[in-house]
């Protein structure tokens, strides 16, 4: 799968979950890999680009999660 498309899928998953259930990195890897029939490592590489760019961030509250950064 095209990486940009994969990144879009990941972002939309996090977006759809916002305010409902916080997702851990592992939740995202499992879900997207299963839905798209991909290896987790491929999803992980795409997720890492999103995090490196600051499009998604790690947050911590009683556990580490992936979220959309708050608007300043």
């Amino acid at each position: 799968m095209d990486k940009e498309q994969l990144k879009k899928i990941i972002y939309e998953l996090v977006e759809a979950s916002t305010g409902k259930k916080k997702l851990k990195q592992s939740d995202i890897l499992k879900k997207v890999a299963a839905d798209q029939g991909l290896e987790k490592d491929e999803v992980k590489a795409a997720l890492r680009e999103l995090v490196d760019a600051g499009t998604l961030i790690f947050t911590y509250f009683g556990g580490s999660f992936i979220e959309i950064p708050p608007k300043q």
């Binding site: 990195q25 961030i57 790690f58 911590y60 509250f61 580490s64 979220e67 950064p69 708050p70």
Partner: peptide, 17 residues
């Protein structure tokens, strides 16, 4: 107070808010 969302870009740890 509890930590907030702080860190360095790309990392999910190493900084405690």
């Amino acid at each position: 107070k509890h930590g907030g969302i702080v860190g360095v870009r790309g990392y999910g740890g190493g900084v405690i808010g």
